[in-house]
Design a protein around this nucleic acid. Structure first.
Length: 177
DNA sequence: ACGATGATGAAC
DNA sequence: TTCATCATCGTA
């Protein structure tokens, strides 16, 4: 079983999408070859009220992507150094996204940390606002792996202390054990 | 513990 | 146009 995830997969509750992306494969086409990595850690950035989300400051040239089409990538530069990969969730006009934080190559090599993951898979802002799919050279696949809820750990998000005492501690990071 | 490194958004 | 800030990582 090998099914490319389409836009409707992402047009759902952001937490559901973040949870269901665990065990799915992120596939990158690079110079004719396909590199596949199973997603093992995600983070939820959901809605205008989420003070950790870029969208909490409203629609800006950068964040408009989050208000856009579900299934599009949101890629931005972090700390002037690292490209961060997100997928947009929910219907148009509602800002939601899932940050892809970790994955493991089918060779067993872990891609740990969102900055290292994008570097390894040659992902950058050229993919910003592009639809996840074979046309863009980067997509998600369901390869039939079923993840039981007992294997999903819910933890606080990383690096969001600026979001304040409520939003910084919410357990919106999902990790596969 | 800290510096690299540059885009972003808000203020002036 | 300036300025503080930042969804990280490698080195110390």
């Amino acid at each position: 079983m090998r099914k490319v995830l389409a836009a409707e997969f992402f047009n759902r509750d952001t937490k559901i999408v973040a949870e269901e992306l665990l065990g799915k494969f992120l596939v990158r086409k690079m110079n004719g070859k396909e590199l596949a990595a199973m997603v093992t850690e995600t983070e939820v950035y959901d809605g205008p009220h989420d003070l950790a989300s870029h969208a909490s400051r409203g629609r800006t040239p950068r964040t408009q992507v989050m208000f856009g089409h579900p299934g599009n990538f949101y890629v931005y530069l972090c700390y002037g150094v690292h490209e961060m990969l997100n997928v947009v969730t929910r219907e148009k006009e509602y800002p939601g996204a899932v940050l892809i934080r970790k994955a493991i190559l089918d060779t067993g090599v872990p891609l740990g940390g969102p900055g290292k993951l994008t570097k390894s898979l040659n992902i950058n802002r050229a993919l910003n606002d592009k639809l996840a799919g074979k046309a863009s050279g980067l997509w998600f696949e369901d390869r039939g792996i079923n993840i039981p809820a007992s294997r999903i750990q819910k933890l606080p998000r990383i690096g969001v202390a600026y979001a304040g005492p409520i939003w910084s501690v919410k357990k919106l990071r999902f990790a596969l054990t």
